[in-house]
Design a protein around this nucleic acid. Structure first.
Length: 740
DNA sequence: AGCACGCCGACT
DNA sequence: GTCGGCGTGCTC
């Protein structure tokens, strides 16, 4: 025999592993979780060893020898391997891509896990004894650098030294030349925040409800899932922090997952200011080395807390103690392309696997989580609607019919804005539509300017003087005349945040106005600056899109205006009402957070809509219960399981031919198994053409997960065989959050 | 996904 | 005569 055979996950879209002979120089046994460099076709690829066996089903003449094993210690530990193995099976996604998703890009490319060194500096003996005042008098920056060394007595890297001034690098070179400082190279590590920040924070005394939640989570032994329900500002973060502190006392790490937009500098600052440990941060803005650093800090146990977005659910933890999912209802926790996993669902699986508690926090829990609470699988902890503060905001529905409307605002809403501004209140205006106007209408022939590649209208952006398609990103200069009839009577129709901002500036020229949407926060650090303007009170009016709803704390807002409540009311997706309610509660929750009671004004064409009424009169909980009954009757999640097969192609027929063949294969599979699984479609996506591709889908409905999985495994194998699949791009989405 | 092979149209 | 279009097949 040729020695052990390695079963390797290689990054391809194939649902299987590849067998290789052990490399010649394999010193020691190959182990599961190690990275291995293998020849793959004409190329070399980095794969993950998923198993080691003495035999292989592959013909001996086809077996190739692996080039080398890249890790001494497995890059993925046994717990992560189990998680990824399960995820690949459950989401029916190729193992090679699943394992790759769990590794920082640097490791995917084959870099040594210890790579990433940094240059830093420390004082020499001469430097320790040098006359500080004499140096500081002639060279300010050098003086500040010496002061930094004196404060910490440490080895300092660029990140810390740059605080001395923009010309720090020139100053440090001068200090090296004088022999006061020496330059060294060390393995890069994340630093804990300066202790000076920590002294500023005075932890608030927990409320009785917070106490109950903290105690419940702290006393949990082994796996336990909790829903921590409470609006932003009710003190969820304080509960997290107290539980994390207890974990630190026991020398255990906590993994905190937050939605993309929630990972703001403010949140990070708050954690660093409070916790006596290094905090590893993982978000999309990091470069490869920074990511590797954070990953390693988590794995080696250098970081007491790891905060990250979705993909951080895969970081290795040396001493796991707790997993927190903040804003667990947020759809950005589900990856929407490629490997379509839910970080929330994987967190629960991982918590069980690691035998640690999992806390799911939200003001507006997903129906899936509420169902788990109802079934007794999760423990429900709830915080009163607001910590310390007075009462519920007053909510007022404004009928948009039979009313004069200027710039999208009715008279009552304008009055309310003026009233709150005069009373020195802060006003927040929510309009989930960016740009100036959502369409451009020819008043002569009635044509609307449409995108050439999508079934959608172009949005007018006045600031950039362009028409932009929000679906494919296409841009066009503003037309001088109608493209259909040639006349020049083009009218911007509808309200976007850009237009609303300009209207508000005309109305209140002397008030600070800040707009927060994707267009105004494009540059790095921009969002932080804008949030600061709101917090400091410099801005009296803050307007924006969905971005405003995600976890930012604006304690002085007394009035919240929802300009158009109707966008989400009649969505195509069965989850439209859940989404709308979540956005509502999240937005309305901003009003009157501190001492003053707030007001919420909502403009709608349907003031009698039962959903709005229930939500406003009774709150999110009763709304959710009512909506859940509908879900049960209709067989929608969380009362049933869904899987979506999507297909797209520049040729309409290619996409739908594939879906029809897929349906036939499904019928075939079901005839053999006899399981009660329903197939709906093929149906065109709600926006059939996007970025020049025609899109369609097939919806699979089953009563139980087991049934769904029994169906999906053989079906997926059949899909891979379908000839029609070669002419269309397709993907499987288990537990989809978006139905198109 | 890549990458090669292979078999038909318009070009130096 | 060949450059190159994308259909088909393969990757241990």
């Amino acid at each position: 025999m040729t020695g052990p055979v390695l079963q390797v996950a290689v990054g391809t879209p194939l649902m299987r592993l590849f067998d290789y002979l052990s490399p010649d120089d394999a010193n020691g046994a190959a182990r599961r979780g190690q990275r291995v460099l293998v020849p793959f076709g004409k190329r070399r690829r980095v794969g993950i060893i998923c198993g080691v066996s003495e035999t292989s089903d592959v013909a001996p003449d086809k077996l190739r020898r692996a080039i080398s094993i890249l890790d001494a210690e497995p890059a993925l530990d046994a717990d992560l391997m189990a998680l990824l193995d399960w995820a690949s099976t459950y989401y029916h996604h190729p193992p090679g891509e699943v394992y790759a998703a769990a590794l920082p890009i640097a490791l995917r490319k084959g870099t040594a896990p210890r790579a990433g060194s940094e240059t830093c500096w420390r004082l020499t003996t001469d430097g320790e004894n040098a006359d500080r005042d004499a140096i500081a008098k002639r060279a300010k920056v050098q003086g500040r650098i010496l002061a930094l060394f004196d404060e910490t007595g440490d080895t300092l890297g660029k990140d810390r030294l740059s605080a001395a001034g923009a010309t720090w690098d020139r100053a440090i070179r001068a200090l090296v030349d004088k022999g006061l400082v020496e330059r060294i190279t060390r393995e890069a590590r994340i630093a804990r925040a300066a202790a000076v920040d920590r002294r500023r924070a005075t932890p608030p005394e927990p409320t009785p409800e917070q106490r109950v939640a903290i105690d419940a989570i702290r006393t949990a032994r082994g796996y336990n899932a909790f829903l921590l329900e409470g609006v932003t500002g009710s003190g969820k973060t304080e509960v997290y922090l107290r539980c994390i502190e207890r974990q630190l006392e026991n020398d255990r790490q906590t993994l905190v997952i937050v939605p993309e937009i929630g990972l703001t500098p403010q949140l990070v600052d708050r954690f660093e200011a409070r916790l006596d440990c290094a905090v590893a941060i993982l978000h999309s803005g990091l470069n490869d080395t920074e990511r590797l650093l954070a990953w390693r800090a988590a794995r080696d146990g250098d970081a007491g807390v790891v905060i990250g977005t979705r993909s951080a659910i895969f970081v290795p933890l040396a001493r796991p103690g707790l997993i927190v999912i903040d804003e667990e209802h947020d759809t950005s926790l589900k990856q929407q392309e490629g490997f379509r996993y839910s970080a929330r669902d994987l967190a629960v699986w991982r918590g069980r696997q690691l035998a640690v508690p999992v806390v799911l926090g939200s003001a507006t829990p997903s129906f899936e989580t509420l169902e788990n609470v109802a079934a007794g699988r999760y423990t429900h902890l709830s915080l009163p609607r607001r910590a310390g503060a007075a009462r519920q905001p007053d909510i007022r529905l404004i009928d948009l019919r039979h009313q004069p409307i200027r710039d999208g605002l009715t008279e009552p809403m304008r009055d309310a804005i003026a009233r709150h501004l005069d009373a020195n209140g802060q006003v927040m205006i929510y309009l989930n539509r960016r740009g100036f106007a959502p369409s451009l209408l020819c008043t002569s022939c009635g044509a609307l300017t449409e995108c050439r590649r999508c079934d959608a209208r172009m949005v007018l952006h006045r600031g950039r003087n362009k028409l932009i398609c929000h679906h494919c990103g296409a841009e066009r200069p503003l037309p001088d005349a109608c493209e259909a009839c040639g006349t020049a009577e083009l009218l911007p129709v509808g309200q976007g945040t850009e237009r609303l901002e300009s209207a508000l500036r005309d109305l209140y020229p002397d008030r600070g106005i800040v707009r927060i949407d994707r267009d105004t926060t494009r540059k790095r650090g921009e969002i932080g600056r804008k949030l600061e303007q709101v917090r400091s009170g410099e801005a009296r009016i803050v307007l924006g899109t969905q971005m405003l709803t995600k976890g930012h704390d604006f304690p002085d807002v007394t009035l919240v205006c929802i300009v158009d409540a109707d966008q989400g009311l009649f969505g195509t997706d069965f989850r439209a009402s859940e989404r709308l309610a979540q956005a509502f509660v999240q937005v309305a929750g901003r009003a009157g957070r501190a001492k003053r009671a707030g007001e919420v004004y909502i403009q709608t064409l349907f003031p009698d809509h039962p959903l709005l009424r229930t939500l406003i009169a009774d709150g999110y909980g009763p709304f959710a219960r009512a909506a859940m009954t509908e879900r049960r009757d209709a067989g929608w999640p969380p009362c049933a399981c869904l899987t979506l097969l999507r297909a797209e192609s520049p040729q309409r027929d290619a996409a739908f031919d594939f879906l029809r063949a897929a349906r036939a294969a499904a019928v075939d599979v079901l005839a053999a198994s006899g399981d009660d699984v329903t197939i709906l479609g093929p149906a065109p996506a709600p926006m059939e053409r996007r970025a020049g591709r025609f899109r369609g889908q097939l919806l699979i409905q089953a009563q139980q997960r087991g049934q769904m999985q029994r169906f999906l495994t053989p079906w997926r194998a059949r899909l891979d065989e379908l000839q029609q699949g070669r002419r269309a791009r397709w993907s499987i989405d288990v537990d989809p959050v978006e139905l198109f």
